[in-house]
Nucleic acid binder design. Sequence first.
DNA 1: CTGTTAGCGCATTCAA
DNA 2: TTGAATGCGCTAACAG
Lengths: 293, 293
Amino acid sequence: MAAADELGYRPNAIAQGLITRRSGMIAVIISNLTNLHYPEVLAELTQGLSGRGARVLLFALKSESEIDEILDQVWRYQVDGAIVAARLSDDQLSTFKARGTALVLYNRQSDGVPVASVACEFAAGEALLVDGMIASGCCNFAIIGGPTDSTVGEARVNGALDRLALAGLTSVPIERGDFSYQGGYDAATRLLKDKRIDAIISANDTMALGAMDAARLDFGHQIPETLSIVGFDGVAPAKWRSYDLTTMRQPVGRMTTAAISMLFDQIENPDLGPEKRLFSGSLIRGKTARLAG
Amino acid sequence: MAAADELGYRPNAIAQGLITRRSGMIAVIISNLTNLHYPEVLAELTQGLSGRGARVLLFALKSESEIDEILDQVWRYQVDGAIVAARLSDDQLSTFKARGTALVLYNRQSDGVPVASVACEFAAGEALLVDGMIASGCCNFAIIGGPTDSTVGEARVNGALDRLALAGLTSVPIERGDFSYQGGYDAATRLLKDKRIDAIISANDTMALGAMDAARLDFGHQIPETLSIVGFDGVAPAKWRSYDLTTMRQPVGRMTTAAISMLFDQIENPDLGPEKRLFSGSLIRGKTARLAG
DNA sequence: CTGTTAGCGCATTCAA
DNA sequence: TTGAATGCGCTAACAG
């Protein structure tokens, strides 16, 4: 019988799945793969899932409107579970429960339906950044946010705003970008017309890098002397020496590991109550902000 | 019957696949997802395949040695085809033919077994870069290559060496990196100890960016006045204003589109002769090399 | 054109 | 322990 194996025989996983009702496939749904942060997440997820004997069925959304057709495919393929970094409506969330498909949200929360999720704590992270900048003398803040329909983006903007308000800083100008370098560059170009701005908080690193270039190359700013800039994520280019961005690094490894184990917990024990796990980021003291304290 | 659909019924693609012998899944195998270039490729592939009604089963290799277990999974899952950006042995290539699984190599070639592939022409690209640099007065070239076991890396290094030899430039120093920023940074640090070097050719953009930072921040070079640097790929960060790298951009959209249509051609017509499609890159005249001509 | 049946490749059950 | 039968959800080929 082992001879058959030498002949190239491999059990048909598709047929196996039909009978065991376990396809061995996990849907990974990511809304903007081109964001520098997500390839890292995807790589970790793929490795981690592979280590637990599962395969990744990948879905990348070009726009959030595609999510319905994507979910349609997800149902057809009988995936054992899904890890989702995209906006899901309450209806869509309920469908997962109704169909008994395990689900973990990545860096998103649900206000309505209870659902398992992992996320990086932004409030504490933003607070740390904001407090440090205030303590070092920044007083005219501006924010570069994501699109208003982005959960992550809004959360980070609000986290920063809250902390600024706590320090008595209100009416902070906000410009929005699409999380891209160019988006950050353009947003900063609009913001820096106001010469008093001496601190920019960006909702992610890539936009912060664009903002840095606009500030120093077009506006003649010295960073961090005349302008502080901070980001969020801790992507690889933020560490590059031409930038050396001050930012909060998401613990990608721990988050993906957690997402995977939560997913398998659900699969093995279907009526497990959903759990939310929050990880705190780690401060990367780059050279783009003087952080006192 | 349409009422059943409202009830949430979706045909079981797994069962469909069992009988039609078409799973609707394409394996995408990528060796180093963390390389900045590949997320873009993956995004395009996923979109394109989705547009043709196929789903992506993703495999990311941490090291080339995992390829065998990966292929094992590929066979089990009865994928309709595979797009592979990883090193495959002749044996492995033959197995695809033997099992009748459609296959397109991405940016790799096979010398032995005939197999369909798409690739970006490096020789002409490197020639363009090299000629331009020579014409503008560079005469002490150095090369930053990839690991010796990387097909793409070696091809690009050899492309550059050939062209340099044609101009009578021989004994060009080569240092190798792992395609990462740090790898390029370190390689440049070793190369630039020789003060005569006035031109660096990097096997990819990310290493070129690392080399730029080493050159200007540690060695006090003015780019491109005292040192020219060119890369290959055309990744997003290469266009960032702090770098503005001179490079050859791979036509990712055309290449992925071609890979997908070649794959489907094979699927629909199994005994189609393999075709190699070569695309030429487009020169991006950044600011890191003065290119005469 | 609608209704029935067989079988895709397995895992699981039951009989031997 | 080994061997044969059943069925997972569907499609295709067939009969009515």
